[in-house]
Amino acid sequence: MLSLLRPLLAACLYLQLPGGQGRIPGYNNGFHYQDISNGNGNGEIYFNGVRLHVESPEPSVSATRGSSVTLPCHYHYEPELTTPRRTRVKWSWLPANTITAPASPEVFTRETEVMVAMGNRHRSYGNFRGRVRLRRSAPGDMSLVINELQLNDTGRYRCEVIDGLEDESVTVELELRGVVFPYYSQKGRYHFNFFGAQQACQDQDATLATFEQLFAAWEEGLDWCNAGWLADGTVQYPITVPRDGCGGVDLAAGLRSYGQRNRLLHSYDAFCFSASVKGTVYFLKHLTKLNFTEAVQACASDGSQIAKVGQLYAAWRLMGLDRCDAGWLADGSVRYPITKARANCGPPEPGVRSFGFPPLYLKFDVYCYR
Results as ranks from 00 to 15, higher is better:
73 C>I: 08
55 E>K: 09
119 G>L: 09
80 E>M: 08
109 T>Y: 11
63 A>L: 06
55 E>C: 07
62 S>T: 12
113 E>F: 00
59 P>V: 10
93 W>M: 00
47 F>M: 11
94 L>H: 01
92 S>F: 03
36 I>G: 02
77 Y>P: 03
63 A>F: 08
76 H>F: 13
40 N>C: 05
34 Q>H: 05
65 R>S: 07
51 R>F: 04
92 S>N: 00
49 G>E: 00
86 R>V: 00
46 Y>H: 08
73 C>F: 13
72 P>I: 13
97 N>T: 00
78 E>F: 03
97 N>S: 09
37 S>V: 06
106 E>C: 01
77 Y>T: 10
87 T>M: 14
96 A>G: 05
33 Y>D: 07
72 P>Q: 15
100 T>Q: 04
105 P>Y: 03
40 N>I: 03
46 Y>D: 10
56 S>N: 13
82 T>I: 12
67 S>F: 04
56 S>D: 04
50 V>F: 07
101 A>E: 15
83 T>P: 01
110 R>S: 14
40 N>P: 00
76 H>K: 09
57 P>C: 04
43 G>Y: 11
69 V>N: 13
40 N>M: 06
101 A>Y: 02
105 P>K: 05
86 R>I: 07
42 N>D: 10
116 V>E: 01
42 N>W: 02
45 I>M: 10
64 T>L: 09
36 I>N: 05
64 T>N: 11
82 T>L: 15
37 S>L: 07
59 P>N: 14
67 S>Y: 06
79 P>V: 08
105 P>T: 14
96 A>D: 01
51 R>E: 15
49 G>Q: 05
106 E>H: 11
77 Y>K: 04
88 R>G: 12
57 P>S: 09
41 G>P: 01
53 H>C: 10
57 P>R: 05
112 T>K: 15
34 Q>W: 03
117 A>F: 01
51 R>L: 08
67 S>T: 10
62 S>K: 07
95 P>Q: 07
110 R>C: 08
44 E>F: 03
85 R>Q: 15
57 P>T: 06
50 V>R: 10
85 R>G: 01
97 N>R: 06
39 G>T: 08
45 I>D: 10
58 E>A: 08
46 Y>Q: 09
95 P>I: 07
95 P>E: 07
39 G>E: 12
108 F>K: 12
43 G>T: 07
99 I>Y: 01
81 L>Q: 14
100 T>E: 11
44 E>Y: 04
76 H>L: 06
41 G>Y: 02
